[in-house]
Amino acid sequence: MVDIISAKSLGSNDIKIDGAVGEPFCDDAKMSMRNVDVFYGDNQAIHDVSFDLEKNQVTALIGPSGCGKSTFLRCLNRMNDLIPICNVKGSLQLDGEEIYGKQMDPVLLRARVGMVFQKPNPFPKSIYENVAYGPKIHGLATDKSELDEIVETSLRKAGLFNEVKDRLDQPGTGLSGGQQQRLCIARTIAVSPEVILMDEPASALDPIATAVIEELIHELKEKYTIAIVTHSMQQAARVSQKTAYFHLGKLVEMGDTKQIFTNPRHELTENYISGRFG
């Protein structure tokens, strides 16, 4: 009989995490993180994490609850700046530029590294205004017709245009959960980011809406580099090319998704993906 046990009781006390195993680094890196530590006050949430996000690939961040994967994702576009007690150490680079460097403007960074959140959070505005929000702020369109075009392309890329083209002036909050999430993705695409971070984008959606989003992620990787945090191992296996397994704030293993799910090298990874805990 296999006991389902919590991550803590199986934790790193029993099985040592001695640096990440697998292939965390690659030649064609869009973002590269080296020796990253994250602290909440005195509490260390991320311990010495190093890996690369490969260009035009989907990288899945998996691991049990509280392992720090969302925290880490939020460092990549400095969303953690909003939390005063959060402190990030180490090197995080986007195309060789230091994200936490003095020259980096967090506002511009977030336009380049967009984010889709766990719960769909459309603004209480019309569908059109939701997508036009970013381009207007960054002055991406010079006139109305150009803005219309950006809105239409973004909605098309998010696979939403045909469903909403007759009601662009209706509030975005009136859409279904799955449509709202695709609206949020369209909104993110509209400012032409280079990287899209997704924090459990399908966890609040039903299976059909989830399938649509996953299909979308698959298409988006042609143009964007994507990092996705997910609780569902099946989802990670379906959408990603690379998988990073986090455990209690440490990166345990990283490699090709196929290899991680068929032939994990670390005992903890194997325990997790075989459903022993998590």
Binding site: N77, R110, R112, G114, F117, N121, G134, I137, R187, V191
Partner: peptide, 12 residues
């Protein structure tokens, strides 16, 4: 979530 959504798109 709304605030984060806006900030996450590069709004000041």
């Amino acid at each position: 979530a709304l605030k984060e959504g806006s900030l996450g798109m590069g709004a000041t």
